[in-house]
């Protein structure tokens, strides 16, 4: 917490206004029925009172539910494709929870791997992620089991912590530190402020009682991988909707489609879900037509395949898949029910 700063809550709107001059500022809003990140309206900071997390994870700002990759127009001479107008505005997202911030570093490696994905990475490079330490986690949260926590800073540029009348402000990344360092609205935090933040964070961490042992989940999943009856049972109540995947902060599967009428149109990318049987449908066959195979793939992608590729577990414990599931399918219960490790395949 060295060099930490603070801002009085009544000055937060001022600070955001200041940042609005250089950045498009987004903040939690529930103006249209659900909590989501929306363009900050220039005054409302009431989210400090009600906001726990958004329904749409922060990924949707970088990998939107649907986006135009390029426009297409046809004329006598052929086709013309054109990229969407380049946007150079920086974007500052205020109030990102630690679980969501962490998801960004998990997604970054996917979109940097092999071929760079210009759409995602361009937005990421223009963004400042301002985190908001969790002080009131939900009973569905299990971030502390997956290398995160209510005060984890991974993926953030700056982190704010609500310490009562003030917000403690810490620069995390180089970009964030620079932004915090030169700011006149921010005062130096005292030892008392820092102690208070420490206490609040500890209390938040204690509130997270949903815990799973992920130490050997990779091996345990591998051991049970071919056990169809296990997966049949685990997937029985799943209805194969896309809630847990489309609204997961780390799920990134997408589809590419054209939308064209007359000679004008565009190629779009949109989020897709491995929970849909249409996802892997090929003209002649479908390797994951069975629901249990899809549930297995979803779980294993997060806890087995992704870790094999990129070391980390592709889950941040945000709990959305538990909270929003139509049938209360609970990933932590399933991971808990994995049989203890025995002879594994590799």
């Amino acid at each position: 917490m060295a060099d930490s700063k603070k801002v009085r809550k009544e000055d937060l709107a001022g600070l955001l206004t200041e940042w609005s001059r250089d950045y498009a500022v987004l903040a939690p809003s529930r103006a249209d029925g659900v909590a989501r990140m929306a363009a900050w309206d220039g005054e409302d900071i009431s989210f400090l009172d009600w906001y726990r997390n958004t329904i749409n994870p922060v990924k949707s700002l970088f990998l939107p539910p649907v986006e135009e990759m390029f426009s297409i127009s046809r004329n006598e001479r052929g086709h013309r494709i054109e990229l969407p107008p380049k946007d150079d505005t920086g974007c500052l997202v205020f109030g990102v929870r630690p679980c969501d911030a962490r998801s960004l570093i998990l997604l970054d490696v996917v979109f940097e791997d092999a071929y760079e994905d210009p759409y995602y990475l361009d937005r990421r490079r223009r963004s400042i992620v301002v985190g908001l330490c969790c002080t009131n986690p939900c009973d569905s949260c299990f971030c502390t089991s997956v290398d995160s926590g209510p005060a984890a800073t991974a993926g953030m540029d700056i982190m704010f912590t609500d310490i009562g009348d003030n917000l403690l402000v810490e620069g995390i990344s180089r970009k964030g530190k620079e932004l915090v360092a030169g700011n006149a609205t921010l005062a130096k935090a005292t030892r008392t402020d820092e102690n208070r933040a420490r206490k609040i964070r500890l209390a938040a961490e204690k509130k997270i009682t949903r815990k799973i042992d992920t130490g050997d989940s990779k091996e345990r999943l591998l051991a049970v991988f071919e056990d169809e009856s296990f997966w049949q049972q685990v997937s029985a109540k799943c209805v194969s909707c896309g809630v847990c995947t489309l609204l997961c902060p780390t799920c990134y599967c997408f589809d590419i489609n054209d939308a064209m009428t007359g000679g004008e149109g565009s190629r779009c990318r949109s989020l897709d879900s491995c929970a849909f049987s249409s996802y892997t449908k090929m003209p002649m066959e479908n390797p994951r037509a069975d629901k249990w195979r899809r549930v297995r793939n979803k779980l294993c992608h997060k806890y087995e395949f992704y870790p094999m590729l990129f070391d980390n577990i592709a889950c941040t414990g945000c709990g959305r898949c538990i909270r929003l599931c139509p049938v209360n399918w609970d990933i932590t219960q399933v991971l808990d029910s994995l049989p203890a490790k025995h002879e594994s395949k590799i």
């Binding site: 029925g33 209805v239 909707c241 896309g242 609204l247």
Partner: peptide
């Protein structure tokens, strides 16, 4: 139109 702007096409409505 405003309501459906936030539809994610998760098809939960259909699948339940």
């Amino acid at each position: 139109q405003n309501e459906f702007r936030r539809c994610t096409r998760c098809y939960a409505c259909r699948n339940v």
